[in-house]
Nucleic acid binder design. Structure first.
Lengths: 338, 338
DNA sequence: TTGAAAGCGCTAACAA
DNA sequence: TTGTTAGCGCTTTCAA
């Protein structure tokens, strides 16, 4: 067991040719039982493990998919990942995950590295939807699925949650409670989720004949701190909103911290609803109403798409799947007293 | 651009030998400027990307480390991962992550797959500390670092947080507030964190001459639901505890849900302190006191250990690093009224 | 400064 | 049922 044993060593020990050993380690038939056992024994004895690099060189496939997320610390992604991994495991695929820290530069490096490694496909939530830095995927003809954020510069299969509908429902709920001064903490408008959720907000107030008040529209960056700042800004207004809609989980957390610091009474002085369910939702008093997304299902469908794309490459037209969000009513939206 | 271009295609187009191309793509010198530019141009034109499999075959190293965690959905791990990734990126290593779902069987498969791929090392929080299923790592002489949970069956570098100390401080804090009926929600006793935190608990009450009351020791499995159940069980006691110490983050969450359901007033009727800081800690009322762990530092040190081990293999003795936890006092532990 | 060529460990086509 | 052999795409040694 000096340096790593290879297929040669096994063949020699079992007194057969390497071709026969190859058959055994690949579970092909056409090997006499006794021979197989001898080989298995040799493998065991030497502690032989097949070299994936060499195998890949011949086979041109790795049975591995790469997953790229912008921020592993955002709980949304581990949940999506769990869905991907489960389905992948069923189909005998391996999954490798990398996080870009929201940096397109790092993202590009990761993509390149994944391609070098010959992943059979990639699932990505990009740090920059314009997607120029992802052209490699297209050029190299790598099956790709976009999740949560779409890619502008070329066509890919995409799995999204219906952001417009989710935001609409949330805001509608507020309106039906009698609110008219409804603020929105927006995500970045150059991202699909940020833009579409704002769209849903606008659509809802429009449908109910509420004029859009620019002062109630505050920009955030999907980060916790921006939610905090936005909330403080809203509090400064002469005419304060009676309700707030936050566009994502992290900003919701920031918003709650601000509410607490400002002593702005959740549910009483200001109603609240957020996009994305969060851990803290049921621990607050009152409990937070939210629009929840089916993260695991997102991951599962993303993998199914990718798997089909890997196996039929050109044949399929590009698809987009939009999952319905779910409105979860708890107690943070109160009826407006007239 | 029919099938993927290789080094041959580049060489042909640039009218040089493949050796020269190889020099360029590996940034070696000894290539005339003009030649280099011609090659670069050819690479660009063809969209050439070097094949990692072929490269690995020659080089015998991948500049990649594998990370194995038991549950990607537990926020502890993404945070550790962030620390690993950051340091790895600095040293030009790539990181691939897989989650085992707490299954030693899946874990063994992942380990094997990582070895097949020739990872230069692995960082692992194992699903089964006895570690028989990890012998491969040892046999194949793969540099390995254990994180958070140790491995019994062979020696590895290990990075832990000082569980005994953390639990001791937490329980001591309770004692100094005048509590004597202090319950513990334990983790599995066959895991290092579960066992050691119980040890810290015992040590603390012993030091302060409080007899161990078996009824106040409830077993959990580190999962949320077990924390919930444990809390209900404690509530049933004739002599209820005046304080609870929970051994990890998920059980803390379960415990909080139970407190709420049982209408058992946190801080007033029962004091609480938990191992691990949690998102919800500062949103509860009163805010939760906890023992926090430096997750990112854990990841960083784990990578540093691994990196040294990769570069000096045999030379180093096995090391164990124990990080100090931090006691964060908020408001969930109240002074006992005499 | 450049090129020729050996060979890394494996799979698969073909032959026996 | 088993063996021989030609590469897969690259790095690296040696020679020019």
């Amino acid at each position: 067991m000096d340096s790593k044993p290879n297929i040669q060593d096994v063949a020699r020990l079992a007194d057969v040719s390497i071709a026969t050993v190859s058959r055994v380690i690949n579970n092909q038939d056409g090997v006499r039982k006794a021979t197989e056992e001898r080989i298995l024994k040799a493998i065991e004895e030497l502690g032989y493990i097949r070299n994936a690099a060499a195998r890949t060189m011949k086979r041109k496939e790795t049975n591995t998919i790469g997953v790229i997320v912008p921020d592993i610390k955002n709980p949304f992604f581990p949940l999506v990942m769990a869905g991907i991994e489960q389905k992948a495991r069923e189909k005998n695929y391996f999954t490798i995950l990398s996080s870009t820290n929201e940096s397109p530069v790092i993202e590009e490096k990761i993509v390149k590295n994944f391609i070098e490694r010959g992943v059979d496909g990639v699932i990505i939530t990009t740090a920059d939807e314009n997607g120029e830095h992802l052209k490699l995927l297209q050029e190299q003809n790598i099956p790709t699925v976009a999740v949560d954020r779409s890619i502008k510069s070329f066509e890919v299969d995409t799995v999204l949650v219906d952001n417009v509908k989710g935001a609409y429902q949330a805001v509608q709920h507020l309106i039906l409670q009698g609110h008219r001064k409804i603020a929105i903490i927006c995500g970045p408008q150059n991202t699909t989720p940020g833009f579409e959720r704002f769209l849903g907000y606008k659509k809802a107030i429009e449908d109910y004949n509420i004029p859009l008040d620019e002062r109630l529209v505050v920009q955030g960056d999907f980060g916790e701190h921006s939610g905090y700042l936005a909330t403080r800004q809203l509090r400064e207004l002469d005419e304060r909103p009676t309700a707030i809609f936050s566009s994502n989980n992290l900003m919701t957390i920031g918003c709650m911290k601000a509410l607490d610091d400002l002593n702005w009474k959740l549910g009483y002085e200001v109603s609240f609803i957020g996009f994305d369910d969060v851990d803290i939702a049921t621990f607050l008093n009152p409990k937070l109403s939210v629009v929840a997304r089916p993260m695991k299902a997102v991951g599962e469908i993303a993998f199914m798409f990718l798997h089909e794309r890997i196996n039929f490459k050109e044949a399929l037209p590009k698809r987009q799947y939009s999952l319905p969000p779910e409105l979860i009513i708890r107690h943070s939206c109160r009826l407006m007293k007239k």
